[in-house]
Design a protein around this nucleic acid. Structure first.
Lengths: 206, 206
DNA sequence: CATAGTGATGACACGTCATGTCGTCAACGA
DNA sequence: TCGTTGACGACATGACGTGTCATCACTATG
């Protein structure tokens, strides 16, 4: 038997999320969180760098996965194909089936400026990881940077659309639809052939 | 004669930048800044919401300008044309001729996690403003969101490339080049005009 | 000239965040 | 058995950020 109850980090995370939903992020103090989890303030900062991080630690592994997936994707795929495949493979499974809890988390994040900032930093870390992957594929620095930014834009936009959607559409579909729409905007087909193109691609993908 | 020396905000900004360059952002305290500017701590927070904001307040007007420019651009232009014209008109003049001071500022921002976060938040505010403009142009919500994200990606990437460039190339040129490269990545011409390597690999794979 | 209002600043107090340091105690291995 | 490791508690500290009130030049109005 251990001297302390196990799972300190997870208890802190759960306690923090509950309190954030109940009182709002800014109104909750770290001592309140640790009191509910049965720990001390100092222990909170041993597990999380700051009060915000408790809402983002769960996705710490994503950047590394992105780099490897982009770098190892079959040669011959276009950048957009690599992006869509990578996001559907790595990201979509982290969304499907978790819509309710992710909606709660998003509401908390959007309610606080500081949390929005941290959210954007996490997205930027994913993009930086993507740059490394595309560089390993042989893309020049500029193309790799832009491709990684596009990936970040697609996952971000798709995530919001998926969370706003009330059907059970799988995240991978939304990702493909968003990528197609982005191609349309860049090539100036915005709104013209959009609907038809998207459904065809979505059906092909499913 | 005034009771206090005029230009309190500008004095604070200059003092802060000097100290940040000299000691690093984290090592500088607000009382140090205000002491150099001949003011009190409380006055600093009357002019800037927090310690980071002193490095970003100068671009507070950009989002509003972006919204109006995008919304008022001549009808018939494609989204990418609107983006490039808007950025060249509104943003490029804020760069040309200021390369040295902007390089100093970038170095400070990149040296601190918190400043990077704030930087990303400012970019996101520009993107949000862009969405409003494209919506006013008649684009659907998804296309407007993606177009605004593309604009943010282009300005961000172009700014870094311009700062890394040692020639006197005007910012507008870099913006156009970056936009063209982005179109190339999306339509899979990445490297065609740049290296030629990737295209060969793609053709071999396909 | 007198008076009241406005607005930027100084002065002070306070709560929270974040970190450094040291002590405690269980678990583990030689 | 004994030393090491690692998670946590306890305490102290400094900086951040905010609320509140007083001060004093400037301005408008009569």
């Amino acid at each position: 038997m251990s001297r302390w109850e196990p799972g300190a980090a997870e208890r802190l995370r759960a306690a923090a999320l509950d309190l954030f939903v109940e009182h709002g992020f800014a109104a909750v103090t770290v001592p309140q969180i640790t009191a509910r989890a049965g720990l001390t303030t100092r222990t909170f900062f041993r597990h999380f760098a700051d009060k915000r991080e408790v809402l983002f630690a769960h996705e710490a592994a994503l950047p590394g996965l992105m780099t490897r997936f982009f770098a190892d994707a079959p040669p011959g795929l276009t950048p957009m194909e690599v992006i869509v495949e990578g996001l559907c493979t790595l990201v979509a499974p982290r969304f499907d089936g978790l819509k309710d809890s992710l909606r709660v988390r998003r509401q908390v994040v959007l309610s606080d400026e500081g949390l929005r900032e941290r959210d954007l930093r996490k997205r930027a870390l994913i993009a930086e990881a993507g740059v490394a992957g595309f560089r390993d594929r042989g893309l020049d620095e500029l193309s790799a940077t832009l491709a990684a930014q596009l990936a970040a834009t697609i996952i971000d936009t798709a995530a919001h659309r998926w969370l706003d959607d009330d059907t059970d559409r799988p995240m991978a579909d939304v990702i493909r639809e968003t990528a197609a729409a982005l191609t349309g905007v860049v090539t100036d087909q915005a709104g013209t052939a959009l609907t038809g193109v998207v459904t065809d691609q979505a059906k092909a993908g499913a």
